[in-house]
Design a protein around this nucleic acid. Structure first.
Lengths: 144, 144
DNA sequence: ACAGCAGTTTAGACAAAGTCTATATTAATG
DNA sequence: CATTAATATAGACTTTGTCTAAACTGCTGT
């Protein structure tokens, strides 16, 4: 589990409101995790969240971290980003945008929605509806 | 490990040539796996390949299946598709194209390259070069 | 033919992310 | 405030994938 310093948090009442608006009861653990996630637009793995929330003392269990991140993603509070075959990243920015993924460093950065545009759209298979479009530009470090 | 029937294979000499052209020495195990992969355009997980190649008797070890698929991907013989957080799919079609991923069924299907087009392109971060663009349209089953 | 050698393959131990289960704790409700 | 429903927890477990050390394969040059 990574050990990362907790930076400035978001105001508690603000976060509590966000949760309530999505129909999530704001328990202590959920609020703590939400404060970390929404301190800024960022991409965190479950393990990283675990490390930040439990920096020093143990306050939230592994199961709760996983449950909570899954719940948040389900309710549309955060977005899952699947680019690394070994783990899920949770993106605190749910505005439409895409990602660069540096295969060498594991770094994940944003591509603003308007710099990439689809000008045509495939027909969806029978009986299905689109749930989202993910565009990932994979990067390598130049070695010149 | 899944147990799937092996369908019609590709001719051995043909596959051996493909491997040689990419600088891969065509060992028995590699040829067997390549014959399965290239029998048609498809998306298979390591576990599925394992199931097909070893249908009935055990002929290729787990380590070799993983090594071989990794090697093939590295040499550009197959393409890794990362859409399912629990496993990698290997796509035997390396032509430029994209994917539908049905979140409910786990089904992965192709989107022809020409039905989706990027009409602008983001600036790449300093010191990096693009390694590929993956577009994934996530689907859910309609429940009406 | 065959000793030596590099490249492969193998079984099984191991690692890491994530899930599950049964129990304990907390929060909500009347 | 007692009861009940919802959450949180520790730790066992599962799955995908990696690693390691030993065995095997098939060349090479003599």
């Amino acid at each position: 589990m990574e050990n990362i310093l907790k930076t400035q948090a978001v105001a508690k009442p603000e976060v509590i409101n966000m949760l309530k608006q999505k129909g999530i009861s704001p328990t202590q653990q959920r609020v703590e995790i939400a404060q970390i996630l929404f301190s800024k637009p960022q991409h965190l793995s479950a393990d990283q969240v675990m490390g930040i929330v439990n920096n020093g003392e143990q306050r939230v269990s592994k199961a709760t971290v996983y449950n909570t991140l899954g719940l948040f993603a389900n309710k549309g509070l955060v977005r899952e980003v699947i680019v690394d075959p070994t783990k899920i990243f949770y993106d605190s920015n749910i505005q439409s945008h895409h990602h660069f993924y540096n295969v060498d460093s594991g770094e994940l950065t944003d591509i603003h929605a308007h710099t990439v545009q689809l000008n045509s759209y495939p027909e969806l298979p029978e009986g299905t509806e689109a749930d989202g479009v993910d565009i990932v530009v994979r990067l390598r470090n130049k070695k010149d």
